[in-house]
Structures are given as C-alpha cells and as structure tokens.
C-alpha cells in the first residue's frame, strides 16, 4: 500500500515548550538516517530552526499570503518526503486559522498527505484546552502530545495534566544537564554529525549524556514511524 507523505506540525500556542527542539530533533533523526526532508520555520524574526538548516528549511511569514502559499502549497505535495513545520507560538492561531480557511485537512486527505500535530504540553490550563480545540476541529488530525522535561516540566502532577489532553500518544523529550544543553544549543552544533563523529575535544561525560538522550528520542521517533506505517499496511 502506498505510504502517505507525513507532515509533522511542531506546535504550541505558548512559548518555551520545546517545539523548535522537537523540529530540530526530528530533522536530525531524518538526516542521521540518510533521508531527505523539507522544513518550514514560521518565525520570520528569529528563526532558530531555519538558521540551523538553511539549505532545507524555508523561513516563512505565516501572516502573509505569500508565506502561506510558500508553505502550505509545498506541504500538500505527495512526494513521500517528510515535511516538518516549526510553528512559532505567535503564529499558532494564524496557522490554525489558515488551515481552516483553505480547507487544508480535506485537501491533505485527497492528496495522500498525513498531517500529524506534535502538540507541546505545558502546565497551563490553556494548553490542553487548545489541544482539545484542535482535536475537535479536525478529529482526523493525528496528534502526539510532546512533553519536554527541560523546556516545560509538568512537575509532580504530570500524569493528571497529561490526562487532560485529547491524545494518548506521547513523545517524551528528557531534560539535558547544563553542560550537554550548552553543547546542543550552540549555533554550529549538529546532532547527526556528532553521532557519526563526536568532536575529540568534547568531554566523555557530555558525549555519553548526549548519546543517551538522543537514543531515547530517536527510538521514540522510530517506533512512531513503524506504528504509523503498520496502521496503513494493507496486509495486516
């Protein structure tokens, strides 16, 4: 059975939830596995995601029609190349509104494109409400709730908070120690390059910590991809 083209929408209506980190990790996962991708960064002012992958990530202003055309028209191309969108929290509402106005989900279904919202949880009550609104608007939209323990820790009430979200599918991004985080956040740092050839001047402790952290994340991505592929398989 023909596989749908996946569109990962890394999003949250709030800042500092780790959406850009997830977009970046997903990108590194695809690069590490030798796969092509197309990325979009909807923060036209400080595009961190776009700046890290200038060859493959298009920076768009989702508030303009030109930006919407550059992004959504490409997202609807069924070419089996995964698309990753880092939705800036300030453009979240506009992004969702545009999806609605242009009939994005209907066209995605016709075009064999599978949008998946990687919705980033946080401890506010508005966050699950936004996720519920999204799920109510488009029940067919795949949704994974992402918890970034470093960027937006949920604390002791994590399981109660997560129970309020509409999807039981989860990604958990662990918290990095300070040294590894500084390394990961350095502008020139590439996780896929690091995994292939760690810099010789990097501390062994940092190296081990980053490897363990990355392995945990990549395993989740791989499992998700396998599960999604199996769900679409005709012979099962």
């Amino acid at each position: 059975m023909e596989q749908k083209t996946r569109v990962y929408i890394c999003c949250s209506p709030h800042k500092r939830t780790g959406a850009t980190t997830t977009a970046r990790l997903l990108t590194e996962y695809l690069i590490f596995n030798g796969r092509s991708f197309a990325g979009f960064d909807t923060d036209p002012h400080e595009p961190d995601y776009g700046a890290r992958f200038p060859q493959a990530v298009t920076i768009v202003d989702a508030a303009t029609i030109e930006g919407q055309v550059a992004m959504f028209d490409r997202l609807l191309v069924h070419d089996e190349t995964p698309k990753i969108v880092d939705v800036w929290h300030r453009s979240y509402s506009r992004f969702v509104e545009t999806m609605s106005q242009i009939g994005f989900m209907d066209e995605a279904r016709r075009a064999m494109v599978q949008p998946i919202a990687l919705f980033h949880a946080d401890a506010t009550s508005a966050s699950p409400a936004a996720a519920l609104a999204l799920a109510a608007r488009w029940p067919e939209l795949g949704m994974v709730i992402v918890t970034n323990k470093g960027a937006a820790p949920l604390g002791l009430d994590a399981s109660d908070i997560l129970a309020q979200y509409p999807s039981s599918r989860r990604f958990v991004i662990g918290a990095l120690d300070a040294s590894s985080r500084a390394c990961f956040e350095a502008p020139e740092f590439s996780l896929s390059h690091f995994l292939l050839a760690p810099p010789s001047d990097m501390s062994i402790v940092t190296r081990t910590s980053l490897r363990a952290w990355t392995a945990q994340v990549f395993t989740q991505f791989q499992t998700f991809e396998l599960q999604t592929s199996m769900q679409g398989a005709q012979f099962l």
Binding site: I65, Q68, V69, F72, D73, L76, I102, G103, E107
Partner: peptide, 11 residues
Amino acid sequence: HSFVLRGYVRT
C-alpha cells in the same frame, strides 16, 4: 493554481 489561493477562493 496555488492550493492556498484556491482554498481562500473556495471559502
């Protein structure tokens, strides 16, 4: 034609 523009016209 652009899907986005068609979508706006359809709406």
